[in-house]
Design a protein around this nucleic acid. Structure first.
Lengths: 110, 110
DNA sequence: AGCGCGCCCCTAGACAGTCGACAGGAGGAT
DNA sequence: ATCCTCCTGTCGACTGTCTAGGGGCGCGCT
């Protein structure tokens, strides 16, 4: 009831993460930052959603992890898109498009 | 796994239902049919999602229900958009647009 | 040296909403 | 009578998010 002011994403985080990794490997915190930035603050990724998602994706074999050190010289786990992850990204992107179009059709009929 | 040809909606059903009721009152089954039709079969509403959603919306006061008889002379519960439901629809539509745009921005950066 | 802050990782429990399957009643046609 | 279609509804399992924690380690400041 008490309508929490939020309107976070109900979309599968997965495709967003996958897409963010296309330019190159990144650590989790950086991924979240970038998504928020590129979406102009509309999409915010909570840590409690981020890490489970990351681990899920890794388990699926769509991304692979490797420890390294961040630009601030902190220990960080870098994730990279795998080949199957690339395919998955394409499939899910296509999926999103169809979904968005379909919802659009329903919503914009005067 | 066995890729059931569908890829149901992970979107809030609510806004779809609300929008479908704009032209006039409808019964639950008809709402589901119409959404599927307008979305060109991309969006399918399962019964197990539909009725809980309907009841939820009614409880929120966004739609009101009334028993009547369908065009096939069957007993059916007709739902109508209330005034607050109208407002809610506008808000959620706006919300969807922002979300879709944001996801689009992330996804289409080459 | 010691302290705090910002960066970066992770987990646990509660909770909401969907999915697939199932159940039931009532009208119309055979 | 019997069966099919229309139409409403519920239940348990599951997936995924949210809130709210906890910890470790550089770096700059005093």
């Amino acid at each position: 009831m008490n309508r929490p002011n939020i309107d976070l994403l109900q979309v599968t985080l997965d495709v967003l993460i996958l897409k963010t990794l296309v330019p190159g490997a990144m650590h989790g915190w950086g991924i979240a930052q970038r998504i928020q930035q590129v979406s102009q603050d509309v999409l915010r990724v909570n840590q409690g959603s981020l890490y489970p998602a990351l681990h899920r994706l890794e388990e699926e074999g769509w991304i692979s992890a490797e420890w390294g050190s961040s630009e601030n010289n902190r220990k960080a786990k870098f994730y990279r898109l795998t080949r199957t992850g690339q395919r998955q990204l394409e499939a899910e992107t296509e999926n999103w498009k169809r979904l968005a179009e379909a919802v659009g059709r329903v919503l914009q009929t005067t």
